[in-house]
Design a protein around this nucleic acid. Structure first.
Lengths: 340, 340
DNA sequence: ACTGGCACTCCGAACGCTGGAGTGCCAGGG
DNA sequence: CCCTGGCACTCCAGCGTTCGGAGTGCCAGT
């Protein structure tokens, strides 16, 4: 049905349209790409491509623009992910290497991603429920007030304050600290939650009240965030890159960026860092974002993704470059996190 | 020069223009506000106001719109800050009360502020150099790798990783921890930096190398962030509220939001929470933001501001309500922070 | 199967027109 | 002296019209 040349034509249309953001006609197409055939022939091919639903014309007697299906075919079959130049790679590593802690890594990543792709970048914080307990710290602030600090394997730190029912004994705190750490260190948060339940019983009845309070707060910290994932967003200024129809195109995206729940759905399930998820136009779950595409991938260790990162942009984006950048950044971040 | 009625006219013009975003003429003005005089009289007043530079007309034979000077006069003399309704106050407290830690407080504040003012909200994190050391924690992650956690009086947590020159002894760590805390707890970060310098000398020569490494990193954490202040931004979707001239109005703001340095300058010096800073149009330090106003104030304790929060929006915003909301939020946040 | 030619379509920029909202000014009246 | 009604003037925004160019579809010829 679609021979080689028709696919070439489609590829050329996508590339031209992405570059110019204007409907592309048969004549300009043969001028710019040397297809070796006449405009008339291209017109026939275009008619076929339109028949199949890969391109469309905004109105009769205008050039063609790709449909979502057209972009989909382009991404799947007609293009190869573009690798970054050595200079770019180097810039990435050196920029990320300067990070001082997890927060900083995420902030830098989001900035970096926005800069290279020139799109809006989204980075999900490493999820708590896939990471491990690295350390739990109990600190006395006043005799009646304790600070709990939870440090996870990804370097994420959660803190909670606990009001004690009565003045607490330093000895007890030290004891509790070491018992918590020996009981939980290295466990996944989900497992740790289970182990935690047994802790209060190992203490004498007099202290149990306090210990329970602490354990409860800790449990909350473990599970609380599972639903409410954290997210960083950057490069909103790149929204300029959508066309001019502010109301229809930009506004919905701007609104979505405020709603982290929506962003999480957009990013989708964290995939293996090798695999890129591309959602084109109406393929994504929100009607209002029909002119928006998402390119995302997981990051973390090689085998298992800790979280997802990606970009959001107009459907008429440069997919090969964008995909290359997202993939590269995901890899380097994974590496940085593994090292620290 | 400007009698009472002329000021009434200016007030009416500002209010109408803010409500409609359209140049307001003499007739509509007397219709909507009962000024008790005829359109012709108002026209004369308008001519005077224009003469003085408080209003202007986009083109001959159009209505008038306020100039930046007009808004300035309005804010300074012609309006009173609007207090929130009890329901709104209650909503604020209950929304902020749910916060679990400092990060959460800031996130909630920014969201809240954006929601009530329907503008872009900006909240600066409590600055390190004005807060005190609450606790310092040293955690062994591997025998060669230590995690330092600094907790400040505002609840802010900074963490750093230190590679030890040789395997470290648990005993030494415990010793160091308690010495650091007794030496530094309660001090301002700036003072603490000085006290810190003396710490290594109190250790035997064998350990001094390690201790110095830790102290150096800690010092960096103390001072590092002084320049690089953290900031949270929210409500970018409200940028829709600017007029339609996307390129001129919205784009520069969107770009500024990415540059935290610029935002800090916009917010300006943290003021006493009682005092509101209002920068109207070209009063702010960036040429591109000439159609943008900033309403900001400090928050923290009553006597001294920890940091600044505020909003950014079009010059034609509803100043009385916005100022009321910013002030109220600042107060409640200060309260929440004082309690925790 | 590809190509050149031709008639047709349709948008968008340019132009001119017109109604309405607004102004400035002036002379008259409390 | 300040206010008012009246009047001529200005100028934009919206609307309809025109027109050229870019693009298409189709057909007959190679």
């Amino acid at each position: 049905m679609l021979d080689e040349r028709k696919l070439d034509v489609l590829r050329a249309i996508v590339e031209d349209y992405v570059a110019t953001h204007e409907p592309v006609g048969s004549k300009t197409l043969v001028d710019r790409h040397n297809l070796g055939v006449s405009p008339a022939t291209v017109r026939n091919d275009m008619a076929a491509l339109e028949e199949e639903g890969y391109i469309t014309q905004p109105h009769t007697s205008a050039g063609r623009i790709p449909t979502d299906a057209g972009y989909r075919l382009f991404v799947d079959k007609l293009s190869t992910v573009k690798t970054l130049s050595p200079a770019e790679k180097k810039a990435i590593t050196s920029f990320l290497a300067g990070a001082v802690d997890l927060d900083d890594v995420v902030r830098r990543t989001v900035r970096l991603l926005a800069q290279i792709t020139r799109q809006v970048a989204i980075v999900q914080y490493p999820s708590l429920n896939r990471s491990h307990v690295r350390h739990i710290e109990v600190v006395t602030m006043t005799p009646r007030r304790l600070l709990l600090v939870l440090i996870t394997s990804a370097g994420r730190v959660e803190q909670r304050i606990v009001e004690a029912p009565h003045d607490v004994d330093e000895q007890l705190i030290g004891d509790l600290r070491s018992r918590l750490n020996t009981a939980l260190a290295g466990q996944r948060l989900t497992e740790a939650a289970t182990s935690l339940a047994a802790v209060p019983e190992t203490f004498p009845p007099h202290d149990r009240h306090l210990v329970s309070a602490i354990v409860t707060t800790l449990l909350e910290a473990f599970t609380d965030e599972v639903g409410e994932q954290r997210i960083a967003v950057g490069g909103a200024a790149n929204l300029t890159r959508y066309g001019d129809d502010f109301e229809r195109n930009v506004k919905p995206v701007l609104e979505a960026l405020e709603e982290h729940v929506i962003l999480l759905k957009l990013l989708g399930e964290a995939t293996n860092p090798q695999t890129l998820t591309v959602r084109i136009g109406h393929e994504n779950p929100y009607e209002e974002l029909a002119t928006t595409s998402v390119v995302a991938t997981g990051y973390g260790s090689k085998s298992e993704a800790l979280a997802t990162l990606g970009i959001v942009g107009p459907t008429h984006m440069d997919y090969p470059s964008t995909m290359g950048a997202v993939r590269a950044v995901a890899r380097y971040v994974s590496q940085i996190l593994a090292d620290s």
